[in-house]
Write a protein that binds this DNA or RNA. Structure first.
Lengths: 355, 355
DNA sequence: CGAGATCGTTAAAACGATTTTGTGCACCTG
DNA sequence: CAGGTGCACAAAATCGTTTTAACGATCTCG
């Protein structure tokens, strides 16, 4: 019966008019029943509901959006979905947004400002109610050209503190500093920091944290930062080079997901072992850190909280609550595991954690 | 100059009418200039273009979609974005779609048919031109209730061969069979297959491949399949149990991403090593497989090709090309590395691949 | 009892584009 | 020169909803 009713108007999906006609009411009444904006007498309400069911009517969101000037869509632009950090971020935001009946339009900028600007432009044309962006560069001038027309926008992970935007990031400085201090406290004096790219505030905060930790320990001149690029192999190569030097570092602090992968591969390629030959501390945690043997110590970014905060801030703006732009810096946690040991422990293979 | 022009209509973004007025032409002409559907005299064309630039006019995609009955939006529904396989799939599809000026609405079903059905319903209301779904179950009856109203839809990874849909999947049967044969050829006779969930055709194909490989070797009765569930710890527990048995398997074939993680953790938790105490073969490859030591042998799914094929098929339907539904089964590749060794090699710690 | 408030209802006007239809003009053609 | 043909353009219809404004009926209160 439901099914038969479906085919009413030449195969085309039924419109609110069809429903209205079938229920002998005005289209406006159908709208009122469905949206609940205005009260409708019970008998009519039932007639409308029945007609809706019989026709299998599904309101055309497009038309509603056009009229309402609200799409309940938010655009998300991230540099790279294959990075687990961003995947997790998007995953969580989508989940939260869905709870409030918002949908997300996802776009990748591929770490490229030009693509990014283009994507933002597309999202604007699509009338998204809000934007969550992890910019390719901290300088958002590329898409800030459209700044005046931007809907509520929150910047995550990068571009922290840019005027006019709610911004969120992990406390990279503090996390890197604490990570470095952890290594120092173990007795390391030759710590190499490996980053993917030094152009991002994101990363340069980590570099600063690292440097300050060294400075405070009176080891400012021991700072050694290597830039590996956005590829695993690039990082691996850079790290191999460091490890081949006569004054090989006693610890590697890989300040990015890609760098960690590169570091592990480099250590292995040279037939070394951590923590025996060199300690390893990773920025960005994952299940793999406790799958590797030994377990890899890591600084964990609060991805879930970042997502939650991003959504909270955006939703606040969407629902009209004004207020000053927010700057949220969330603390990372240091997971000390097995890959970080005093340098003196080198050569002595120890077996840990036998059940 | 551009900027000043922007503020023309009480802060609201300019419409095609505003442009038309400024250029002293009809709205239709503006449309024709911008879409290029009909020729417009050069002088008017220039006037329109100038007006567009001056006002910073951006066509309202919503209105255009409503009129055109085409949104250039495709919906993607996947079970879980934190699974790298799906993340990579979405990443690639988004990339390809963007090249053809299509955008994607992303939704997660969280492996739940009910949520899935709801998401599909939302996508239908949003008038998406097409759908790419990795269903939570092979039985798509949940959202097939809306089957009649479904836009062109292609099913990926799961629900292979369902009537009425273009479907794509990896050749799970063959891959598992070859994987198992690889282990058999090394001399293994006690091979445990670990899966996350046996309800998916996806997975049951892998089970079948595994069984057939054993049968053909005359070892049908040695088949041992354990179901670990969708969590790493679930898999780990199940595998630990197997490894504790007196007749401990000599090889573990983990038939899912989650299972591999569980297997590695289980092996480690019992203070065993691969491949010395037990060989390990993983379904799903990743950078981590060559970061672990020893390298983990793996069956690699052709994610990129799956994404490309999904988009190709969908685009074909979107551009009107009809034809029978397609069933594409793509071959996996077996990456033999170091975690799979003859069982006889047990106890003999060998050092491999020193540079 | 009558003015005004309240309520459910509907017709009509938006929303901002595209497409269809129609018109006037210039140019051919027989 | 009458009658077509083609062309660029504009006016109006359209997409499918929501919102506004108007309406009559009922209720309230002085």
């Amino acid at each position: 019966m439901n099914e038969s009713g479906r085919i009413g108007r030449g195969g085309k999906p039924p419109t609110i008019r069809d429903v209205a006609e079938l229920a002998s009411v005005a289209p406006a009444t159908v709208s009122n029943v469905l949206t609940g904006r205005r009260p409708v007498a019970e008998d009519r309400r039932q007639r409308v509901l029945a007609a809706v069911a019989q026709l299998g009517y599904r309101p055309n969101h497009l038309a509603a959006s056009l009229r309402r000037q609200e799409t309940r869509t938010i655009g998300i632009v991230i540099p790279d979905l294959t990075n687990p950090f961003f995947a997790a971020l998007v995953h969580r935001i989508e989940e939260l947004a869905a709870e409030s009946d918002y949908q997300i339009l996802l776009m990748s900028s591929n770490e490229d400002t030009e693509q990014e600007a283009h994507r933002v432009e597309v999202l604007l044309a699509r009338q998204t109610d809000g934007l969550i962006i992890a910019p390719a560069r901290d300088d958002v001038s590329a898409f800030a050209a459209s700044a005046a027309d931007l809907p509520p926008t929150v910047l995550v992970d990068r571009g922290f503190g840019l005027p006019g935007f709610d911004t969120i990031c992990a406390d990279n400085y503090d996390a890197a500093k604490r990570g470095c201090q952890h290594l120092l406290s173990l007795g390391h004096r030759d710590i190499v920091l490996v980053v993917s790219d030094s152009g991002l505030a994101n990363i340069s905060d980590r570099i600063a944290g690292y440097r300050d930790a060294l400075s405070e320990a009176g080891l400012a001149d021991r700072a050694r930062v290597v830039v590996g690029g956005f590829s695993v192999d690039g990082c691996r190569g850079a790290i191999e080079q460091e490890l081949r030097r006569a004054d090989r570092p006693t610890a590697i602090f890989s300040a990015a997901y890609i760098a960690t992968l590169g570091a592990i591969k480099a250590i292995r390629a040279l037939d070394l072992e951590f923590p025996d030959n060199v300690s390893l501390l990773s920025f960005d945690d994952s299940d793999w850190m406790t799958a590797l043997r030994p377990y890899v110590s890591a600084v964990a970014q609060p991805v879930e909280e970042m997502a939650a905060e991003a959504w909270r801030l955006l939703k606040q703006r969407l629902t009209g609550a004004g207020g000053d732009v927010a700057r949220v810096r969330l603390a990372c946690s240091l997971q000390v595991r097995e890959s970080t040991r005093p340098p003196s422990a080198a050569k002595a293979k120890r077996r840990i954690g036998s059940t």
